[in-house]
Amino acid sequence: MFQLIFFSLLNGLVYGMLLFMLSSGLTLIFGMMGVLNFAHASFYMLGAYFAFTLGLHIGFWPALVIAPVLVGLLGALVERQGLRRVHGFGHIAELIFTFGVAILIEEVVQLVWGRPAKSYQVPVLLDFPLFRVMSSSFPAYKAFMLVVAVAIFAFIFVILTRTRAGLIIQASLTHPGMVAMLGHNVPRVFMVVFGIGSALAALAGVIAGPVLGTFPGMAQVLGSIVFVVVVIGGLGSLTGAFVASLLIGIVQTFAVAMDVSVGGALAAVGVHVNPGSALHDLWKVTIAQVAPILPYVLLVLMLIVRPTGLFGTRET
């Protein structure tokens, strides 16, 4: 039991921090520009593919740096040449634009790298079990993912709270018009935040690619979870994104590890279901089987109970 809880917590933490690397950028972009960027997870996918290809030629470590930089530049370009032009036509146009970019990236990835998953491997240097607890071991690579994610968290925190650029970003979250009228180049701030957000998503892709798989559907798989995270945390709230990322990460890893049926779980808390009832089959489903839909259940509950999300200030 201890073993299960310990490893689920650790894995949940790794997964949650990974989600935060994506949701932080997404929520900042939404807070500033009011655009829910559907292409955000596509940049995550591009990060993984770029790193895979670069890795074949120059190795994993240089790719770890270069792939996010390339994707960040691409993100800035998308904002500058695409989103900014579409901006004048309102939020619906922007939404459709980012949706189009997401589809475009997915098609291009299939065209260039093909449909089957790529064998993007954990670098040899980190391919060993870090420690063992009883019969299970914890891979060093996951510890590395955790370290990178925590470093990124610290980076975002310091930039936002300790620098002048961070102050401008924070103020632009609530009053972009006023910030511009104080003489700050808000369009450029948007472009830089969009670029850095894309680069962070790409970095998440680089480090998650070997573990979660590098395939053309990876953007969709993680993308929908990231939207759930951002809505539960509260659109535009960085604190919310952090808390919700860890929450979803840990809930999902725990659920996957549980081999009890729903009926069994109910019995444990004192609710007994009649075995002959019409919904009998439903109670035999294990918690692990419903794990993938748990985030969406949380999403629906959150929207009913508190539409602004945990830390949000506006209605989603």
Binding site: L167, I168, Q170, A171, T174, H175, G177, V179, L182
Partner: peptide, 18 residues
């Protein structure tokens, strides 16, 4: 007035500097 509500008074003033 458009005060930046989450930032401190000092930070609000700093943002006025171009």
């Amino acid at each position: 007035r458009d005060i930046f509500p989450t930032l401190t008074v000092r930070q609000n003033l700093l943002l006025g500097v171009k």
